[in-house]
């Protein structure tokens, strides 16, 4: 897939949070084949140097980083966080989150569009964390976004694709816009479903990091994403209500 004139080889993007250890994180990335890792910025105390240690770990993964504005609830907060992330990670990419609701972590659509416009004008390449709303999608594209990241379900729930109809509609409305299903996936089968529907990639974190064996789950998702993509490209058969024999009817021995 191609996003902001960058060719992205792997259709699985992986978060870096919540792993039991740095070694597990590294092993999960290795087995996932993910080419993009999401990262964040957080407060650091004087003399702490945790940021430098984490940055060394990420560089050893050999992946492209996609910083986020996770936890930001206002446009100003998200914009300032994005600017700090751009300097720290030396990238124009930003996974833009403007959260509007504390319990569902649902994006604030109004703040999201405003922040996307401000950041795009400032030279950022925005990956907006959005819902399946087609009107919001249209506004984000008008604001300069060249990729959309609709949620499957609220962050960290593992519920999968909770609004299949909405996601299918979004995919169909903007067939040429790269789309990444971001958040809410819990199982590889759900990732396969998203890929079969024609989404270009999936982004997940908790489903891998919180699995009993994160590295094995990472590989499970990698295979699931590949299977779903192959199926989409293979042009699946149309489902039908009535049975249709697959074995030829003609030539069957007449034995009754």
């Amino acid at each position: 897939m191609r996003v902001y004139e960058t060719e992205i080889a792997s259709r699985l993007m992986l978060g870096t949070a919540q792993y039991p250890s740095p070694a597990t994180l590294a092993e999960a990335f290795r087995r996932s084949g993910a080419g993009i890792a999401t990262v964040s910025v957080r407060r650091e105390a004087g003399g702490e140097r945790a940021g430098a240690a984490f940055w060394d770990l990420v560089r050893e993964l050999g992946v492209t980083v996609l910083p986020n504005t996770a936890g930001c609830h206002s446009v100003r907060e998200a914009v300032t966080t994005a600017q700090m992330a751009r300097e720290l990670f030396d990238t124009a990419w930003i996974k833009l989150e403007v959260i509007g609701h504390a319990d569902t972590l649902q994006p604030d659509p109004f703040g999201l569009v405003e922040a996307a416009r401000i950041l795009t004008e400032d030279g950022f390449q925005v990956f907006p964390y959005t819902t399946e709303d087609v009107v919001l999608a249209e506004r984000l594209l008008q604001a300069g976004c060249e990729v959309l990241m609709p949620w499957g379900a609220p962050i960290g729930t593992g519920l999968g694709l909770t609004n299949i109809y909405g996601l299918r509609t979004l995919r169909a409305q903007f067939p040429d816009v790269p789309m990444v299903v971001d958040a809410g996936l819990g199982l590889p089968s759900q990732a396969t479903m998203a890929m079969e529907m024609g989404f270009d990639a999936v982004l997940l974190n908790t489903a891998v990091a919180k699995a009993g064996d994160p590295a094995a789950m990472a590989e499970g998702f990698a295979r699931a994403v590949e299977a779903g993509r192959l199926a989409f490209e293979a042009d699946p058969m149309e489902p039908r209500d009535m049975a249709a024999p697959s074995t030829p009817v003609i030539g069957k021995a007449f034995l009754s």
Binding site: T16, G46, F54, I155
Partner: peptide, 10 residues
């Protein structure tokens, strides 16, 4: 003053 550094993120 806010001072931030790279961290894990999803």
């Amino acid at each position: 003053v806010e001072i931030v550094a790279p961290r894990q993120g999803g």
